[in-house]
Design a binder for these strands. Structure first.
Length: 391
RNA sequence: GCUGAGCUGGCAGAGUGGCAUUGCACCUGACUGUAGAUCAGGCGACCCCGAGGGGUCAUUGGAGGUUCGAUUCCUUCGCUCAGCA
């Protein structure tokens, strides 16, 4: 594993820690800093794969937990893996199920071995472990596999954070061992009932430690010792203050191996992503553009806008006149609002397309600025635009 | 014309002597590795302030009555619907 997974650094900003690069996988390459739209159940909600391609999505997320429960990883494996199943030939990263261990905590029982949990769909009992998560992700054939971790709940005492990160550490080692085994020992895959559909799956380890900076360092050292293709910062945006989140990112990101991708999991709002790019983060994912779109909240270069507000009833302007996405070049705010007020599906479709396009354009803008050496000016101006508001 | 059933917020629809319930619609807000096309709050008028609330008045088709107190009971008028002439 990892033989065809590459991270090439292309440019580095001099006034910040921002960096631009290119990641190569078995399903092609994508440029960083990158935003990965979240497609939990084999679909980025409300968008077709063609829309995603046209909006410029170069990698998307899938989820181990959800796809394991439905339709089942064996089914997807038999159909040729997740790429073929959902007809998406660009890279895919799969989350390990670790986040569901956190968000579905009322339905689970945690042990050293793994997590016993009840399906949120039908209440049936299942067991997820590092080994099981690797089997599922191998069956799905994603290009980037995430180690099975425990997303430490917030708030956590220092002792809780420590024992949580140590568990994540042991699970990280087991994840690596099992994924390697599945890839190098044909009998192992066969015994697990799966076919290896992607020979070059990269594996990322996940940094934990809550808001304790020394624990974050301890976690990172342990992960680097095991050795991963990339490193993720997990356990943030789980209820802590934003200042605490950036304290962690600004401390730990620069300590992460320079020659490996750095991935900040679950973040975030546009301004959060810009700030994290400036701290040297390469990859992001977040449900915000898609979930908020379905709930009528749209992102613009002048801050966010709730399209359901009465003030947009007669507004002939595009959602964002600075946006050149397929929605903004064709439809008015009044029309999109009408779709929402009427409960029409197209409202969610157009809003999701706009929000995802907005995020992807923002990433493109930052990549270009880093390469041209203008990141500081461009990002400052972008942030002040967001803060200016629509009035 | 007779008989019966009704009339409650923008709409629908509970309540049957003591704070007018709920849904829809409408108005806001929230959402960060998706148990979420979800959730939360507001929704008669006017006034006050320390911005958290506080106060006054009105209100269940109209008018009257009984009662400490009426959406609820009584009288009457109006309107709607159904059946019968």
């Amino acid at each position: 594993m990892g033989s065809e997974f590459l991270f090439n650094r292309i440019a580095r900003d001099t006034s910040t820690k921002a960096r631009a690069g290119r990641i190569t996988t078995a399903h092609g390459s994508f440029d960083t800093p990158a935003f990965m739209p979240v497609g939990t159940q084999g679909t980025v909600k409300a968008l077709t794969q063609q829309m995603l391609e046209e909006a410029g999505a170069s990698i998307i997320l899938g989820n181990t937990y959800h796809l394991y429960l439905r339709p089942g990883h064996a089914t997807i494996n038999q159909l040729g893996g997740l790429h073929r199943f959902m007809s998406w030939e660009r890279p895919i990263l799969t989350d390990s199920g670790g986040f569901q261990v956190f968000s579905l905590n009322s339905l689970r029982k945690l042990s050293e071995e793994g997590v016993e949990f009840q399906s949120h769909i039908d209440g049936s009992t299942h067991f997820l472990s590092p080994e099981r998560s690797m089997e599922i992700q191998a069956a799905l054939g994603s290009d980037i596999v995430m180690a099975f971790d425990e997303c430490t709940p917030f708030p956590a005492t220092r002792d809780e954070a420590l024992s949580s990160l140590e568990l994540t550490q042991r699970w990280a080692r087991r994840s690596k061992q099992r994924l390697r085994e599945l890839h190098t020992d044909p009998a192992a895959a066969e015994n697990a009932g799966i076919t290896i559909v992607n020979q070059t799956q990269a594996l990322f380890g996940i940094n934990q430690g809550s808001t304790f900076l020394d624990l974050r360092e301890q976690s990172l050292e342990g992960l680097v010792e095991i050795g991963f293709d990339g490193y993720a910062i997990g356990g943030l945006s789980v209820g802590e203050q934003k200042s605490a989140m950036f304290e962690v990112v600004s401390h730990i990101a620069p300590l992460m191996p320079e020659d490996r991708p750095r991935y900040l999991m679950g973040v975030g709002a546009p301004e959060d992503i810009v700030e994290a790019v400036a701290l040297g983060v390469d990859m992001f994912d977040c449900v915000m553009p898609t979930r908020n779109a379905r709930n009528g909240q749209l992102f613009t270069s002048r801050g966010k806008l709730n399209i359901k507000n009465a003030r947009y009833r007669d507004d002939a302007q595009p959602i964002d006149d600075a946006c050149r996405c397929a929605v903004c070049t064709r439809y008015s705010r009044a029309y999109v609002r009408h779709l929402y007020m009427s409960g029409e599906i197209l409202g969610s479709v157009l809003s999701s397309l706009h929000n995802v396009s907005f995020y992807l354009d923002m990433m493109r803008m930052m990549r270009q600025a880093i390469t041209l050496g203008t990141f500081k000016e461009i990002s400052d101006s972008f942030l002040s635009g967001l803060a200016r508001g629509l009035d």
